[in-house]
Design a protein around this nucleic acid. Structure first.
Lengths: 194, 194, 194, 194
DNA sequence: CATGAATGAGCGTTCATTCAT
DNA sequence: AATGAATGAACGCTCATTCAT
């Protein structure tokens, strides 16, 4: 009779979240208007409140969905066994492309900025970030021997997230050159002793 | 008799800018209220408009001042001659401390996020960022021989700005360990062929 | 079933225009507050903006409606054929009553005063006034032979609008006596040579 | 040592009143800003309050001064004895010119409009208008025999003030033609039986 | 499940007036 | 007599949210 988790394009909640995402990227969490989200979701403003308690809640769920997606991306590395770092390097070009997609980098920025003022969001993304990092750390352990691996991962993640910011400040980033240089950095971060 | 440029704590424009900075960090550009800024600046809301045309202008001037300060920081490297990279490494611990100061990293985040929706701000900070990068590139040229120096600098700057984001997502960052690892990264970025 | 143009008391736009009219007469265009208009229209201030872009627009539409009404009044003279001047004289008492209604004379004053500082309003009411005058002139042509008819009409209109002002400066105007005297003036304006 | 009534250009009160007049014509009573008046009067905003209690008071005094001037104009007719109407006709062209001066017609409009909402102003200008009218009536009595003279004067004054409005609604008024036609009207108003 | 009309608190900003000098 | 910096109440307008249907 009824689907359990209809996370398709027809699921109205999903439609709102996607619409909100778009609006947030275009105007920021505070600049985005419920009316704008409603229009994009092809739903009346009033009806959104049938699915979400408030704009705040939409923001919160959207952020969660964002991390859920990242979790899936990260799970690929679980299969890599002892070849995680190789896989990282192989995927570098795609990773840089993802980080420099204005849509995602803007969203990431918006999320982190929101965390600096909304304690609930801060707690939530810190937990999710820790979870993500713990996963990656455990996968990397198969391949990497340094005992300061966690800090090394922090450096690597900082670098990748920083690239998102750089792309905003300098949209003419030479991504190919950067990918090449990043390979060296990864080597030094995770292979020095190998 | 009378100071020409009283950029002291008594200069009312400066007082407003400092107050705005605080309010922006606490609530974001859009969340900050003029009344809040006025209270913090010990000035009536109306009087702020004696010194600034609009909230928008306060944001713009605050951003400019922020970059002006960075320019001064960067100028230290001008004197370093052929020992720029050494100086970078020597200063690493201070640089990391600066990047992980929640006040400044939050402000930076706010600024970059604003750039993604306010074209005037985008143009302004891109110009200022380019200027800053050009300066550093020219100082590095004395010490670094790689022809892809610009991209290497981009990677380095991404890393440093990314650390600001990391500190928000993980306030328990092991700064000492990261400083140590960053030394290796700097070596590989700017010394590999030397 | 649904009405096409419900210009009744239930049409919310009409309700706002009527409320605005009242408020403008009581306090002037600038003195009238949106809250006052909203209260009078039994509508929240915010909701007014569902129907009108701005207070300015309400003023503009109210002025237009005012002229539209005048156009209807004037059209009666179209049917009069060669007996326009007779009709004018027959209607004189009503015309004087209309011009001395404090509500309408105050509104007219407000409109003309607004025209002296708002160029958009000036253009608008000049066009509408010219249209009105052209109509009356063409109707009068059937009955009146003077070639300076336009100037004669200007004199007549000045007189009628001036009565509105007089009524404000002297609310005890002897309207009957004036109507009698006005008959002579009309005769001399439009009948002298007849 | 000190002049009794220094109504010269140096009298600061006079300077403020002249400045206010200008500002009121340009922007209306409510649109005119104290700062604008102060600038025009070459005086600081604060200092204006040394001479006037409030903007309201400036408006009130300015209106009074305006009528005082009119009183002087009207007094010319006192000397005319039995030739008042002749004098009126002789002066017609000047009178029309005065009424169509945008400065004065705008000011008159502003004053009458203010009277419709400010009861103090209403009382004041009604008294002054009555005084003026009584004077002119008494002078006309020497020349005019009709017993409805007061109403005839009302009609005449309505006509002249109406011309001010017409000039705003139609700045291309043919003043010469109108002057000619007005002569006929004056004749019929004040000479019919003579 | 769905609409969109309706609300009203709260914003950035203005400006008559006051105050310290 | 004179300044102009400073105040703060009040405005037009916006928009997240609610309500009648």
């Amino acid at each position: 009779m009824s689907e359990a988790l209809p996370k398709t394009a027809d699921d109205p909640r999903e439609r709102v979240l996607r619409a909100a995402e778009k609006a947030f990227v275009a105007s920021g969490f505070h600049g985005a208007r419920m009316a704008q989200i409603a229009r994009e979701a092809k739903m009346s403003p009033g009806h959104i409140y049938h699915y979400f308690e408030s704009k705040e809640q939409i923001i919160a769920e959207m952020i969660e969905a964002h991390f859920e997606e990242k979790k899936i991306t990260v799970e690929k590395y679980r299969e890599a066994g002892e070849r995680v770092v190789d896989m990282m390097i192989d995927n570098l070009s795609d990773s840089v492309a993802a980080k420099t997609d204005p849509f995602w980098s803007t969203l990431m920025l918006e999320i982190v900025a929101e965390a600096t003022r909304n304690p609930a969001v801060a707690t939530s993304i810190r937990n999710m970030d820790a979870d993500l990092k713990a996963r990656v750390t455990s996968y990397l352990r198969n391949d990497v021997k340094q005992d300061d691996l966690e800090s090394r991962l922090e450096v690597f993640v900082a670098l990748m997230q920083g690239i998102g910011i750089r792309n905003i400040l300098n949209p003419n980033l030479d991504k190919e050159a950067m990918t090449r240089i990043l390979q060296d950095v990864i080597e030094v971060l995770f292979r020095r002793d190998a």
